[in-house]
């Protein structure tokens, strides 16, 4: 998935699958990960690494903020923004 275009739907689906697997139940995309009790904030680093490998991006220090990783929507936005910046 690191080549060509990545759509918001693709990022969204990928994250839902990843989070549902980890939470061991279907993940509601509107839910705040760290307020839900399902994930500790330490899990944020795993999300960073997952997004980097799944979408071929590098998340720089300036974007390492918990608010970018709170919801599926916020993460999708981040991935698309970084890919848009680095791309063509």
């Amino acid at each position: 998935m690191s080549t060509s275009t990545v759509t918001a739907t693709a990022v969204h689906e990928n994250l839902l699958e990843f989070l549902s697997k980890r939470a061991k139940s279907p993940w509601d995309p509107e839910q705040d990960l760290f307020a839900s009790g399902s994930f500790s904030s330490l899990f944020a680093l795993e999300l960073v690494m997952h997004l980097e490998s799944a979408f071929g991006i590098a998340i720089e220090a300036e974007d390492l903020r918990l608010e970018h990783f709170r919801t599926v929507g916020a993460m999708t936005e981040l991935v698309l923004r970084i890919r848009g910046r680095g791309g063509e």
């Binding site: 904030s41 330490l42 944020a44 680093l45 960073v48 690494m49 220090a61 390492l64 903020r65 918990l66």
Partner: peptide
Amino acid sequence: QQLRLAQLMGKLPRG
């Protein structure tokens, strides 16, 4: 990676 975790949590400077 731990440096990134600390930055994520706002516990170590990002700059």
